[in-house]
Simulated assay, not measured.
Amino acid sequence: MSVAEYVYDQDKVNTLLSTIIRTNGNEKGNNWLQQRLQLQQQTGAIPQFNQTFTAIPRFTGKEIITLSSSENEQLQTLLPSFFVHGWTLDRLARVWWLLQLPVSDKSVYLDTLEKLFNAAEMNELAALYSALPLLPWPEEWVARTSEGIRSNIGIVQEAIMLRNPYPAKYLSEPAWNQLVMKAIFTDKPLHLIHGLDERANAALTGILVDFAHERWAAGRTVDPMQWRLLVKFVDTANFPDITRIWHSLDTVEKEAAALVCAQSSYAPARDLLGQSPSLLAEIQAGSLTWDTVAKKIIK
């Protein structure tokens, strides 16, 4: 029997999430969760597990959670890049509940999770995809994640794409590129995609340039943030595109071009940046970054 392996301290994470849930919850909801946990530990019944997963919002409510600075620090120490800010309490409770499912039998575990995915409504799906970085046997969820990328449900797309470290770590290059392009097509904030810079690749660069040409030919604009993905791949073929946005009357586009030039090793790009000492100074001072560009783009 395959043994579940976790890349984090499961007991400490379980305890921390439970604490955050308890401090954000009310007495009724907290008591209900504790009763369901005790029942699950006593019986191990899968139907009871599934029923609890579904019923959680009725008892916890759907308020946005808050974390103390200490809780946030502990979470980032235990799970670097795992992000729960802005989650509703029911989503966090569902993610925590998934950690209570026994992993002693891999086939039963996988079957249970697959059935939850198949039967889930959109908020349940969001919780399931949000839990991906915590689930054992992470390679088993690659196909499911690729399927989720094709979803047309906004909350599900965001659970997979934004601030989720799982896709960058486990998706193949084609699947990763599909995620990024789907994010662009659906106007998601690209700077919130974990691993965006690290997973940039030549194939994706080609797709993005072709996409930009199509948009321009139709008289439409391009998200300035997408040029960030060209930083390591600026060459003679796509440099004219960087030059085009450098000369844009749109300040944000010009700033994006400046950042690409500053971070590129392509000599003509560095020379182009030299034409604007003011932008170069802003970049060197740290007052012009991809984060400042992102804040100027209204989504």
Rank of each mutant, 00 (worst) to 15 (best):
E173V: 15
G195M: 11
N177V: 06
D187E: 14
F185Y: 13
N177C: 10
G195S: 10
M181P: 06
M181I: 11
I184P: 11
A203N: 06
T186S: 06
L192M: 04
H191A: 10
A200E: 10
D197Y: 00
W176R: 05
G195L: 10
A203E: 08
K188D: 01
T205P: 00
L192V: 02
K182F: 05
T205I: 08
T186E: 05
L192S: 04
K188L: 15
D197I: 07
L192E: 01
G195W: 09
I193N: 03
T186H: 11
E198T: 09
W176H: 03
L192G: 01
D187G: 00
L196E: 02
E173P: 03
N177A: 11
L196A: 04
G195I: 14
K182M: 12
T186P: 01
L196P: 01
N177P: 07
I193D: 00
H194E: 06
I193T: 02
E173R: 11
H194Q: 08
V180L: 08
P174H: 06
K182W: 09
T205Y: 05
A203M: 07
D187Y: 13
L179V: 07
L190M: 05
Q178N: 14
A183D: 01
P189Q: 12
Q178K: 11
T186D: 05
N177Q: 10
M181Y: 10
F185L: 14
T205H: 07
A200F: 10
G195C: 12
P174Q: 01
H194Y: 15
N177T: 07
N177H: 05
V180Y: 09
A183R: 04
I184E: 07
N177F: 04
K188E: 03
L204C: 05
E198G: 05
I184C: 13
A202H: 11
N201S: 08
L179D: 01
P189L: 12
K182D: 09
V180R: 07
A183C: 04
R199A: 02
T205F: 03
P174L: 06
I184L: 15
L204H: 05
W176E: 04
N201R: 10
A175M: 00
M181R: 13
E173Q: 15
L190V: 00
L179Y: 14
A175H: 02
E173T: 15
W176C: 02
M181D: 01
P174D: 02
L196V: 01
L190E: 03
A203R: 09
F185P: 04
R199D: 00
I193H: 01
A202E: 12
H194S: 06
A175E: 06
E173I: 14
P189S: 09
L196K: 00
N201E: 07
T205D: 02
K182T: 13
V180D: 03
D187F: 14
P189R: 14
H194V: 15
H194D: 02
P189A: 13
M181T: 13
P174Y: 07
N201Q: 10
H194W: 12
L190Y: 01
L192D: 00
G195N: 06
L179I: 04
P174W: 04
F185T: 14
L192R: 00
E198I: 10
G195A: 08
A200V: 13
E198L: 13
A200M: 13
P174F: 09
T186R: 13
A175I: 04
H191F: 13
A203P: 02
W176S: 00
P189N: 12
K188A: 10
I193G: 04
A202K: 15
I184G: 09
K188T: 08
T205Q: 08
D187A: 14
I184H: 08
L179A: 04
